[in-house]
Amino acid sequence: MGIDRREFIRIAGLSTLLGLGGKGAFELLRPGQVEASMAAKPAAEGVVRWAMVVNMRKMDDDTAKKCAAACHRVHNVPNFAQPKDPKDALPPDIVNRYEVKWIWPEHFHNAFPGEEHPHMPEQMKNLPFLLLCNHCDNPPCVRVCPTKATFRREDGIVNMDMHRCIGCRFCMAGCPFGARSFNWKDPRPYITDTYPGYPTREIGMVEKCTFCAERLAQNMMPACVEASSGALVFGDLNDERSQVRATLKRYFSIRRKVHLGTNPQVYYIV
């Protein structure tokens, strides 16, 4: 944003003069910013914008389980209900508290609270909606992080730098989707089958889905997409010929909590 002091004073003075508080001043200084948080960013040439479509027409409990398992396996996500050593077993309420999850199934009324009504198709109520980080265009977690440990990449991925995280958990309070997990306890004793292609974590940092940034770098699809037998579609939203664009064009889709203005980039076809 190239704006010098003189111009700033001019614009600030103008907007005050005209009584254009709030959005008015915003419009002058950073045109389009307010709209940007509401609508998808316009496509720029050659820029990638990763997005995911969850096609609930193809989703069933088995597929959902497979997707979550595939993700959690290749990212060494611990399962606190299954310790390597039976000595480390934890009671169920504690397992629930410590739980780390990157992608997990949830019923409609939990995935879309407030959107359910008694007359909707019975079958829809019980479908496993896969929830994960929405890689928002306007992510509150990035806004609140005091160290830029979580940051938005130019291709839209909201990534975590676990080397930098101080474990303040402001991002967990900031995320309106419950997509973030904290390492309350050392995860290693709860990873039965350590996957050698990805690090584990230490206590005290926050983690979440990264859209498989490490796999994308090797031209591979995210692990959950590979395991989904077509129920998950992933691709470049800025590429007109991509499968995500085609799917979104063909079917009506919804997103979680759009009214909060975070502009989530995981779409659900219902």
Binding site: V144, P146, C168
Partner: peptide, 25 residues
């Protein structure tokens, strides 16, 4: 605040990577 931090060993990151858009800062 210090006691609540998951990684108090890294608390200086707040000053090393100052982030004015965070209220915590």
């Amino acid at each position: 605040v210090l006691v609540d931090m998951g990684r108090p060993d890294r608390v200086m990151n707040v000053f090393k990577y100052p982030t004015p858009n965070s209220v915590m800062f």
